[in-house]
C-alpha cells in the first residue's frame, strides 16, 4: 500500500528526517512510535507533501507521490487526522463533516458515518469547536471516512482524552480495520497502540530504527522501553 524509502525532510533550514524507511501492507494498522521530537508527525506531514522540502521516495500502491502538490496527493486516496484535530471553528459540525471532497469511490455514506458516530448527528448544527475534545476527535476521524480514502494517517488520536474515550477510539480503529482501511498511526500511548496495531515502527532521531510485530511486544518489552525512555 505505502512504501517509504530514504525519506529526508526539512522545515526551513532544520533537517528533521534523515532517511526514514518503512512499508505498510493493505489492510494493516501500523504505528510510528518514539519519543517526542523524533520526527513522527513530520513523517506524516512529509507523506502529504506539507514540509518545506522532502526528498527520497514515497510510493502509494506503487505510484510515486513524493513531489506532487499536497491536494493531488490527498486525491490519490489519503485521509489525514492532524494532531490538533483540525476542527474548523467557522464551520458547523455537519459542514466540518462534509468538507473533505470525495476523492475515490467506495467511501462511507454520510448516514453510515452518522451510524458510527451518533453523537455527531445529534450535534450536527453546533459550531465545530463547541464539541468536547473527544467529540472533536471523532469528527476529525469521521470526516475522512466519507472521502473514499483507503489510507488513513492519524496523528495521536488519543492525546489528551479520557480513558473511556480512548477505548471508544480503539474500537473505532478496530472497526475501520475490519472494513479494510489501512491505517498509519502516530502514538505516544503505547498501551493503546498495542491494542490496535499489527506492527510498530520505532523512530529515533529522524529515522526508523526498529520494527516490532505486535505479537513480539512482550518479548521485546525491555528493548522497547529503552527506545521510549520509560
Amino acid at each position: 500500500m505505502l512504501s517509504v524509502r530514504d525519506l529526508t525532510g526539512y522545515y526551513g533550514e532544520s533537517h528533521i528526517l534523515h532517511g526514514v524507511e518503512f512499508q505498510i501492507a493493505e489492510g494493516e494498522v501500523v504505528t510510528l512510535i518514539g519519543r517526542n521530537g523524533v520526527g513522527k508527525t513530520t513523517t506524516l506531514r512529509a507523506i502529504l507533501g506539507l514540509l518545506d522540502r522532502q526528498e527520497g521516495s514515497i510510493r502509494l500502491q506503487g505510484e510515486e507521490i513524493l513531489g506532487l502538490r499536497t491536494d493531488r496527493i490527498a486525491r490519490k486516496g489519503i485521509g489525514y487526522v492532524p494532531e490538533d484535530r483540525g476542527i474548523f471553528a467557522s464551520l458547523t459540525v455537519e459542514e466540518n463533516l462534509l468538507l473533505p471532497p470525495v476523492v475515490k469511490p467506495g467511501g462511507l455514506t454520510t448516514e453510515e458515518v452518522y451510524g458510527l458516530f451518533p453523537r455527531l448527528k445529534e450535534r450536527r448544527k453546533s459550531q465545530g469547536t463547541k464539541l468536547s475534545g473527544g467529540e472533536q476527535q471523532m469528527l476529525s476521524i469521521a470526516r475522512i471516512l466519507r472521502t473514499g480514502a483507503r489510507l488513513l494517517l492519524m496523528d495521536e488520536p488519543t492525546e489528551g482524552l479520557a480513558p473511556v474515550i480512548v477505548q471508544q477510539i480503539g474500537s473505532i480503529i478496530a472497526e475501520l480495520k475490519r472494513k479494510g482501511f489501512t491505517i498509519l498511526l502516530v502514538e505516544q500511548n503505547f498501551h493503546f497502540a498495542s491494542g490496535v496495531a499489527d506492527r510498530h515502527y520505532v523512530m529515533e532521531d529522524g529515522k526508523v530504527v526498529d520494527m516490532i510485530p505486535n505479537d513480539r511486544l512482550e518479548a521485546e518489552r525491555e528493548k522497547l522501553q529503552q527506545y521510549l525512555g520509560v
Binding site: D71, A74, S90
Partner: peptide, 24 residues
C-alpha cells in the same frame, strides 16, 4: 454554500484544507 465552506475553512487552516484534496 459548499464553496463558501471551503473558503471559510481555508481561511482558518489552509494546509489542512489542501491536505483534504482541495486546490487551495
Amino acid at each position: 454554500t459548499k464553496l463558501g465552506s471551503y473558503l471559510r475553512a481555508a481561511t482558518e487552516k489552509p494546509q489542512l484544507v489542501q491536505a483534504m484534496g482541495i486546490n487551495v
